[in-house]
Design a protein around this nucleic acid. Structure first.
Lengths: 234, 234
DNA sequence: CAGTGTGAACCACTTCACAGCC
DNA sequence: GGCTGTGAAGTGGTTCACACTG
């Protein structure tokens, strides 16, 4: 299954759940694709990787498809999660409701700041990181979330890996070094902001009739008039 | 410039800054690529889109290259940011130090909860969303960050767009509908968790000698022995 | 001669367009 | 008749391999 497809399955699932809540039991690829913001051919190709769950001439049954996607993503199982780093971000994550849904369950909160030790967040007690190994003995951890400052991230990562955690979600803006068998995904606010800034700058330069180097383009006929154009889903 | 390249430039910049801090003034594509976790050919191809900033037979000058990437990303300018939604996540973002660096500056915090109105976070007063338009009059906003619950996200987005904000960073797990001229990027914790779960499930099934459907494979010789393999940077 | 910059080959993913099926 | 599922074509991005240059 292509990585690009896997990355879109959660979107499809979320949208299907929303349709189900609204009492809709059947969708065509055209409708579902529009709701998600992709092309219908893309959606059909993606779903074809799961098998054949549609009905020709009709569409897809919402509940069936949602269940199948859940199954493929592994959400029918139970995924115990540990969060390391209980600063503002770690707390936000720990109390994030979307976490609990769909098979993810927070079973451990860690921070080495002695001021935080023993404090409870969302009913779970914060423990120092060196207790990780013991924790894993009793309650295994499938996914580790790193919400520490950058400087601590690699050490924390090493501890998680040593404790047998093979899936890591990293919020620190650093590249982690791990064994190939460990899966790391990174979520980085400042990278996203910088990408937005790049596009914003390009728009600004284009509107001013300039190219990326700041030289004026001779053939430019763009008007600076505010014109937002057609609407799209993102 | 390819989108994929733009997405990597912030990584390169971050790594270059770290090298500069350590007093390193020159790197080869091989060294820098290794530090970032990409292939050297990829790095050279990416940098070639910026122009020719390397020296054949030597490498790249760290400071020069960092400055050039900053310029291309638009980080030499000033990017006023507004955050909407002052729950746990919004607060974490508002007090996130990485925000302030590199030209991003928080100029507005908004939330419609009357209990929060007037409260200060990081020296900035929380205001109700309907004051957005007035705020934009005095202090323009380049980037809007949506940190509200899903149900409010589209309305907040519409308000931002109406106020002239053309770059939006969305933390709510919904697909936003915007005019094509508006740039939206989404950061979604639960999507990332689900992708990790998918890969974790595949590993688990593979280790058990099963394929994705749960059928046992006849030709399977994988041993369940824990073998982490070589190390990579992610 | 070491290491950049880049055409060419390769690969992954997307889109098209339509055969096949309910 | 209408919509899925999918080969085939198209697109964008990565990797290779080497000519070129300080």
């Amino acid at each position: 299954m292509p990585d690009a497809t896997v990355a879109r399955l959660p979107e499809y699932l979320r949208t299907l759940s929303r349709l189900a809540e609204r009492g809709i039991h059947s969708v065509s690829s055209e409708e579902l694709a529009a709701a998600v913001g992709v092309r219908s051919a893309q959606l059909r190709k993606d779903l074809s990787h799961l098998g054949s769950y549609g009905v020709r001439g009709v569409g897809y049954e919402v509940e069936t498809l949602a269940l199948e996607i859940s199954r493929v993503l592994g959400l029918t199982g139970d995924w115990p999660v540990a969060i390391v780093g209980m600063g503002n971000l770690g707390r936000a994550l720990a109390s994030y409701s979307g976490f609990v849904t769909k098979g993810f369950r927070i079973v451990g909160l860690f921070d080495d700041d002695p001021h935080l030790e023993g404090e409870q967040v969302g009913g779970i007690t914060i423990r120092p990181l060196h207790e990780l190994a013991a924790q894993v003995e009793e309650h295994p951890i499938a996914i580790g979330v790193i919400a520490t400052p950058s400087r601590a991230a690699q050490d924390v990562c090493d501890s998680l890996v040593a404790a047998g955690v093979a899936s890591i979600l990293n919020f620190a803006p650093v590249t982690l070094t791990v064994p190939v068998s460990v899966d790391v995904r990174r979520v980085d606010l400042s990278t996203e902001l910088q990408i937005l800034a790049f596009h914003a700058q390009r728009r600004a330069l284009a509107a001013a009739g300039l190219n990326e180097r700041g030289d004026r383009r001779g053939d430019d006929l763009i008007d600076a008039h505010q014109h937002l154009g057609p609407v799209v889903s993102r």
